[in-house]
Design a protein around this nucleic acid. Structure first.
Lengths: 236, 236
DNA sequence: CCATCTTTGTGCACGCGTTCACAAAGACAT
DNA sequence: ATGTCTTTGTGAACGCGTGCACAAAGATGG
């Protein structure tokens, strides 16, 4: 993760546990699919299966939001969609800037999941002057030096970093200085941010390495000793 | 997450906790940076700062691997790089197929973090015949129907899914049937897989929604009551 | 109106992960 | 060799998250 409390120690006020917050988007997606099929109600069992979680966990998660179910029947799909959307803050508009318009940045700009939720791409930024003006996902790429004015003019509070690792910290500093308080970081670096700024990190390489670990474990289950021998290099 | 035990209930044998495994790549990255700067040793305090974690946590994590430090001095950087690499299974070669060569798939194919660790892109696959043969990151895109033979010939055990949501489950089924036992899923869908297959999911939209939640919380801290009023639609 | 049946909401126990705090271990100087 | 000083490795306490299991709530039918 990064410095500067990514999550507050214990969510105060109406205290929804962090683990629950992380699952709400999952439920929301499943519910949206049901809504599109005009399914009026759904039981915790069905919805849990669709979201890939335990039904008891789902009920407990919903209990943090309030008592929105009807015993003997289940949950009203539309009502629940609204409640979760509101809780997540998706009923309002979130302007977002994406910095670094390489393949990844372009993929993010084209991602449909943005607009459907409350997210709106306010601008695409890149340091390469050759990219400036080119259309990506219908939006013109603008030069990184416009960052400050764009963030201020559009009241952007969320920034997405899709730059190379070397540029990530500098971009972060500029975003934060301009007023951004939430950052989604795709660059493989630990970002340092002041208190009050949230950072979430998506790291491809890490995910693969975790898979490799389990894969090795699986492959080694047949053999006697999965770990190798003493390394050639000894500690000082 | 997905069906089919993503993580084993309690890691048996030399039992490295799942949370620790997830941090090992982080340490490895920080250590690699130190190694490139020819730093010989590092203390838990310094390394923890570089990785963005607590130093006590780092020491406990390392204690699961064995006693690789020297009291009063710290850890030997090269030695630790080797040990963690071996533990994660990065000393061997992991052939990977990437399915779905849109912007995201192309970004993944171009991602440098692959080759530097033990990962080798064995093939890029896409269902679009128009893409077939086009070079992406120096590799030719091949048609999805070659999936089975490619997986078999290269003994691929890890698959990366970067297709639209609609195609993800079918691709997963084919990958699993062909012998893949670890899947990294970028499509916004819950995948169902048989036991023994690991799935990890990276979901952009979910990360943004979590940020939005905290952002809303931050914005509402000034006001009296951050949650809105009673919704217009009432439950059945 | 009463009985039955379904499904929610939650009290409780358990296990994992985190953090503190300190004793043991070794380096290094004298 | 002895003492001091640094840093590791870990025992123990705590808190969060998960899942069981059941009582309460309400729908539904007779």
């Amino acid at each position: 993760m990064a410095t500067g409390r990514s999550h507050r120690p214990a969510t105060r006020s109406r205290g929804i546990p962090e683990a629950t917050v992380a699952r709400l988007p999952l439920y929301l997606r499943a519910l949206t699919a049901l809504s599109e099929r005009s399914v009026p109600t759904v039981s915790s069992e069905e919805l849990a299966a669709a979201a890939g979680v335990n039904s008891a966990k789902l009920r407990k998660d919903f209990s943090y939001l309030g008592s929105y179910g009807t015993r003997g029947v289940g949950y009203d799909v539309e009502y629940l969609v609204y409640q979760i959307s509101r809780e997540l803050g998706l009923t309002q508009d979130w302007p977002v800037v994406i910095v670094g318009i390489g393949n990844l940045g372009a993929a993010l700009a084209n991602y449909g999941g943005f607009a459907s939720r409350g997210f709106r791409v306010a601008a695409l930024l890149d340091a390469d002057p050759a990219l400036a003006g080119r259309l990506v996902a219908g939006l013109p790429v603008r030069h990184i030096d416009e960052l400050e004015s764009i963030v201020a003019d559009n009241q952007v509070s969320i920034g997405v970093i899709a730059t190379p690792a070397g540029a990530a910290q500098e971009v972060t500093d500029r975003l934060v200085a301009a007023g951004v308080t939430s950052i989604l970081n795709f660059a493989p670096t630990v970002l340092t941010v002041p208190d009050g700024v949230d950072v979430r990190k998506v790291d491809l390489s890490i995910e693969l390495q975790i898979l490799a670990f389990h894969e090795q474990r699986k492959a080694g289950e047949d053999r006697q000793d999965p770990d190798g021998d003493v390394p050639a290099v000894m500690p000082a």
